[in-house]
């Protein structure tokens, strides 16, 4: 979903650039609470993994492909603020070095994938975490659904931007229907890759998974209760 130069007019691109800059500025503050000596290298790894996985376009039929966006994945593993920063770094490298995603569209892409993708994914995740059993393993289905939802939502957000500032004159409903339809299929791939990655880390080191920490705190309390008995 890397938006190229030229899809959106200049005022819209400036607008999304302002939104992106504000979001990244907030994330630089917020990430401080999420990152410490132990999790900083893991967060670097998450950025690397997202870049690598975005190279792996998977076919979704009808001559179309999709790839991981990674917002929900990163938010669950290292926290939403850090996730926004990780995806921003990935997008900057892609736009400057790989000519993937326009330079004038960088703000748009950060807004769509680094803000909408991450935060929709995170909000769905914490909503599900609340209703699922309070265990580290519950993180996997919650992340899976969050990943699925985040992709068509980001696609819908693009459709809204296109209605506001799209250079071509295509009706909103036409763009939105097609974008959400195709990206719902891509969302299935997103969900599968996210489930695989999150379950791998949960299996070996649940304490490293940002989204699993409340469940681990709970478990700590349980054990302490049993000690005097």
């Amino acid at each position: 979903m890397h938006v190229p130069d030229g899809f959106l007019d200049a005022p819209t691109s400036v607008g999304t650039a302002v939104v992106a800059a504000a979001g990244v500025g907030l994330a630089l503050r917020g990430a401080r609470r999420e990152l410490d000596d132990r999790t900083a290298p893991l967060a670097g790894l998450v950025a690397l993994f997202i870049f690598a996985t975005q190279l792996l376009n998977f076919p979704i039929g009808a001559g179309t492909s999709g790839h991981l966006l990674g917002g929900a994945l990163a938010a669950v593993l290292v926290g939403p603020w850090t996730a926004t920063l990780a995806i921003t770094v990935v997008l900057i490298v892609q736009a400057t070095l790989m000519a993937d995603g326009g330079l004038t569209a960088l703000g748009t892409n950060i807004t769509l994938m680094g803000l909408v993708g991450v935060w929709v994914g995170w909000l769905v995740f914490i909503a599900l975490r609340r209703v699922l059993p309070r265990r580290p393993a519950s993180v996997v289905p919650a992340a899976c659904v969050a990943a699925f939802v985040s992709v068509p939502t980001a696609a819908f957000a693009f459709s809204v931007l296109f209605a506001i500032g799209g250079v071509a004159d295509v009706p909103f409903s036409t763009v939105a229907t097609a974008m959400v339809g195709v990206h719902s299929l891509i969302g299935l791939g997103e969900a599968a890759i996210t489930a695989l990655a999150v379950s791998s880390i949960v299996a070996v080191r649940p304490d490293l998974v940002y989204g699993a920490r409340p469940a681990l705190r709970q478990r700590t309390l349980t054990i302490r209760d049993e000690v005097p008995a």
Partner: peptide, 13 residues
């Protein structure tokens, strides 16, 4: 070995 088909956005565009 990744798919070389256009991605979702390029396809819709």
């Amino acid at each position: 070995y990744a798919s070389t088909h256009p991605d979702g956005l390029a396809f819709v565009a």
